[in-house]
Amino acid sequence: MIDLTISTIQETINSLRPGEKGIIGNFAVEKIPLKLQEMGCLPGNEVQLIQLAPFRDPLFLNINGNNLAIRRETADLIEITKVL
């Protein structure tokens, strides 16, 4: 069920809309805090956008069952494929 039609432009967590889900793809390991990875932000895991603060920043996510918030600058670095 992976949407391939818009995969020409690489999507990141930041392109999710509230309620939408995605599967985490690649990211530059050294730019993503280890803590985030320990909370389950690893390639292949599912991410869902729960809520956005004003200006889309920070983002309230559910990653692999964990509720957490990250800033837009971090969200921009994590590639995903949207799940419909």
């Binding site: 509720n67 918030a69 971090t74």
Partner: peptide, 10 residues
């Protein structure tokens, strides 16, 4: 440069 991660506990 460090980043921000906050858990949103139940």
């Amino acid at each position: 440069h460090t980043t921000f991660v906050v858990e949103m506990p139940a």
